[in-house]
Amino acid sequence: MLVLVVVTALGFDFTNGFHDTANAMATSIATGALKPKVAVALSAVLNLVGAFLSIEVALTVTNAVVRIQGSDGAPKQEIVGDGGAGLLLIVLAGLAGGILWNVLTWLLGLPSSSSHALFGGLVGATLAGPGVSGVNWTGDGSKLDGVVGKVLMPAVMSPVIAGVVAAVGTWLVFKVTAGVAGRVADRGFRWGQIGSASLVSLAHGTNDAQKTMGVITLALIAAGDWSDTESIPFWVTVSCAVAIALGTYLGGWRIIRALGKGLVEISSPQGMAAQSSSAAVILASSHLGFALSTTHVATGSIVGSGVGRPGAQVRWRVAARMVTAWMITLPAAAVVGAVMWWAGDLVGGGLPGALVVFAILCGLALGMWLRSRRASIDHTNVNDEWTGPAPEPVAV
């Protein structure tokens, strides 16, 4: 069971990589600052490096979602019982919920949150298993901790903060450079985009790679192979860093296209302002241990860059579609996680249950991947003209 959980967790990490490449590189690809394949290669390397810079978010995932201890510090047997098999099935089912939502939203070209898909899956599987008391809603109750303080509040606040910062930054950039020749300014901002995109990739590694580290550590605790809830095994850090880097290099071109071409007809100054805003918010949150959604931050920044540009236009219908996906991500993944747990429990749990969950996951993911081959998007057509809804003017 532990092997299945670790393999599935690394599979989630891989999907997180290709699902979230767009957060760092969509605007640089859209403006031509970087060639598509160069962009994803650079992002992959920096995600790999970023994964080693902090463990605060990993510890949040290990301790702030599933309540593995009682008030006296002793293990809660209704969750960890059966030699840890109960908690391992919860973790496996939660991962399955996260992966399936990631693959579905990638198929649809929707930049939804991999983080909330993971947390939703874990919460749903926990609710289906030990019940409401198994979810660590507020930590010790004396501060904003647990799922509410570390997951839900950052989910609401981070895209708003990033959008405001990007809007102000974009407005200032255009104000300051109003008298600079267009070609000179554009060349400088493209170099700025490369730097800011690199910083976002590094920040993504410090935040998202750690979520899988936390899940694997939680599984090791359940299996009795690890007991320290304040550190992460080094082999876990290395394997998660490699998995997210490989996924990032794969590209996730559907979502890169949606973010780079679908929201705003973006220019280099906007791209630099959006990416700088994203990097600042993500790095600050990683330092504080907030497991926020880098997708929400990046999307909020791009919309903010459109709002902040004089005479800009934003495709609000596309933005509304993305926000809808944000709102349903956590509950939808929770439902899938719960269904997966029930499927595993139906055959008696334990290893047979884990094998059933794993088989269902592989079958559904393979089906969606085959469906994506009917209308392929890759590095050769990611920057083709957008054919969706027309942009709408923004009053500035």
Rank of each mutant, 00 (worst) to 15 (best):
L100D: 10
Q313D: 06
A85Q: 15
I161T: 13
S43L: 05
K175D: 06
G350D: 11
A125E: 13
S372L: 09
L48A: 12
A243T: 00
A24W: 00
L259Q: 14
P352Y: 12
V281G: 06
G308H: 10
A333H: 02
P154K: 13
L250K: 10
A181W: 10
F189D: 12
V180C: 05
S115V: 04
A274Q: 02
G304W: 01
D186K: 14
E392M: 12
S113E: 06
V165G: 02
I68R: 13
I244Y: 02
V168L: 15
E56Q: 15
T126D: 03
A298V: 00
G139N: 14
G146P: 04
A181Y: 11
I216L: 11
F119Q: 09
V356C: 14
V6Y: 03
V356Q: 13
I377D: 14
T177Q: 08
L288I: 00
S276K: 00
A9H: 03
W235G: 14
W341A: 01
G134W: 07
M368C: 08
A166W: 07
G252A: 09
S227A: 07
A22K: 05
P391Y: 03
T380P: 04
P352R: 11
V151W: 08
A185I: 04
D20M: 08
I221P: 00
G367V: 12
A93S: 15
L246E: 01
S305L: 11
G94P: 02
L218E: 03
A219F: 04
R183P: 05
G81A: 12
S267M: 09
G134V: 08
L199T: 11
V215Q: 00
C362M: 15
L34G: 05
G17K: 07
G353T: 02
N381F: 09
V151P: 02
T324A: 15
C240F: 00
A390G: 06
A166S: 15
L34V: 13
P233H: 12
A280F: 09
A284D: 06
M340H: 06
L89T: 10
V6E: 01
I55Y: 07
V38G: 02
V123L: 03
L330Y: 04
T206F: 03
L87V: 11
V61W: 00
L263N: 05
A245P: 08
H116V: 06
G349A: 08
L92N: 05
P393Q: 12
G139S: 12
M327S: 13
L48Y: 14
G251Q: 02
L88C: 05
V335D: 10
V40L: 00
G252L: 02
L283P: 01
P393G: 07
I99H: 04
A203G: 14
V318Q: 14
L48H: 04
V200L: 08
A30N: 03
G86P: 01
L48S: 02
K150D: 06
A243Q: 04
A223L: 02
V6G: 00
V184L: 15
V264F: 08
V3D: 14
